[in-house]
Design a protein around this nucleic acid. Sequence first.
DNA 1: TTGTACGCGTTATCAA
DNA 2: TTGATAACGCGTACAA
Lengths: 341, 341
Amino acid sequence: MNKSKKVTIHDIAKRLNVTASTVSRSLNNNPRISDKTKKRVLKMAKELNYKPNSIASALRNGKTQIIGLLVPLIDRAFFSSIVRGVEQVAEGFNYHVIVSQSYENLENEKKALKAFLNTQVDGVLVSISKTTTDISHLQDVVESGIPLILFDRSIPQLQADQVVIDDYQGGYEATTHLIEQGCKRIVHFTTGRDLSIYKERYRGYADALAYHGVALDESLVLSANSQLEDGRKHAENLLKNNIDFDAIFSASDFCALGAMQVLKENGIKIPEEVAIVGFSNEPFTSFTEPSISSVNQYPIEMGKTVANLFFDALNTGKDVLPKKTVIQPKLIIRESSLRNK
Amino acid sequence: MNKSKKVTIHDIAKRLNVTASTVSRSLNNNPRISDKTKKRVLKMAKELNYKPNSIASALRNGKTQIIGLLVPLIDRAFFSSIVRGVEQVAEGFNYHVIVSQSYENLENEKKALKAFLNTQVDGVLVSISKTTTDISHLQDVVESGIPLILFDRSIPQLQADQVVIDDYQGGYEATTHLIEQGCKRIVHFTTGRDLSIYKERYRGYADALAYHGVALDESLVLSANSQLEDGRKHAENLLKNNIDFDAIFSASDFCALGAMQVLKENGIKIPEEVAIVGFSNEPFTSFTEPSISSVNQYPIEMGKTVANLFFDALNTGKDVLPKKTVIQPKLIIRESSLRNK
DNA sequence: TTGTACGCGTTATCAA
DNA sequence: TTGATAACGCGTACAA
């Protein structure tokens, strides 16, 4: 039925004995077209079940109404919530969001960005992968002339808008909370990666210790990836080497969980003997036993902020100075760290 | 720099004193162009940093090289793994995948499909929302002439390829396993929704009971949504009403978890007093205590199958009869149901 | 207020 | 083997 042929503005024009331009203008609500004509056009458009061809119009005016959103892993609650936030805002502007994942891999990241540029998205929103070292592919996006916004994992030296949470503050709050619970020997799980978010969390940790007069023991700062397995290994090593510790502040919820598993398997009481705080507020943190305290990063808010920055950039010229937006995180206290109930 | 102007095939043509057609054909590796010319063109293309304009080519030949993938919720591990599977296959065909979520809401689903058609995707892959009752919007996709593939949650009466897992088998295996663990009074959590997947799981449950000579007690079959909260409520009611039961087979992992929480809060031992099996094999099922047995649906495989069906449909004509592919699930036995260790 | 004419970048068809 | 031309559907100066 419908397949027969696509209805175009020309079909409408013919039926009404006007030209395609008139139809085009009417549909775009051009002020220099009489209301009467507009109404006739709209009516006929509906009658013929006209659907504008967005490809043609994209070709014509160079805007696809599509935003490319690139995240490391979409099944991390943090990132899927960001997607949600971005979509909510985009919808209001009649924009579509296309999502890709880098799977924490630089090559995939490059491919995805290329695909975005190829699709001619009107803007790119990126959280870089953990393995991203050089940034030439991001530079390419900037040079292509479309807005680029980075979020969460930022790259200060890049000339682009950035949205991050105050990781320093998150680390500071988490550590302070543990100190207030009476902990003195606080282990910190971070990553070996050169990502500012982890450095900042570490800075917050160190400063909180200093402020409260607790000595920083570098042997308690452990690096690895942020998988569950890494947390398990850390905990196993701590036990094997008889390290003295009474708390863990992990920059990743997954690591925190892994460590907690091992500690429990060894009969260590959480939070009485070891208190634990994670980071990201993944949903599972409230499912575990005990539930895990964690730092909420307000990802939906972040997604909305990122999207809004894009639409700002779309309107204002590109010569504006890059903006940096910082969102305040919040420590959610659960059973794993609460000693005084 | 790069912004100056986009390089087109005409620019290349001019530099080489040939026409745009020759350039186009060379780039597309048309056999009727001399190798020498091809080489010159490719070299010049590289030199000028030419990027093909996919919009123009989409307009010209009616293919965008984009697949629209619509899932209810992307942060369910099941669905994000499907995305992964689809992407893997699509990549090999030089296709892009754009993902949208319906958030289990019919209106969003309609919007998303409209957006897909508007973007002129070459095909649509959908898992319908729980609230989807009428299917006119899906019919619209079919009539638009592009391939539509449904997965997981299928609609038998729709003329479209479908990929599902054998939910009946999953239900049957799970229930049989519980019976083998000595359970006789097995509660089943399902949903009130008119979704075939849940009906099938229930059928499997019922048949397994029958086969093993266990009476089916309809008062043990409980309907609700598949959220954690629903599982909690179910369990609370079971306890409050003093219902006699020694196992739960939940069609949802989240419900299973909710129920387990409540049972444990009431000092009931899992699996000794109540054994539990969930469905979907969400990652958190191995994080809980005890870990939760669940049915693996092999979502990555499903994603790949769905994508391959799309590419099949793209080649063969549309008049082929709709295919239905069934994937076999597998029960993963964990602590929550294993009594004989 | 509306029409004319052209171009966005690519590719298919026909001709040479 | 290559060139010329038209067309995909839309939008916009310019003209009327």
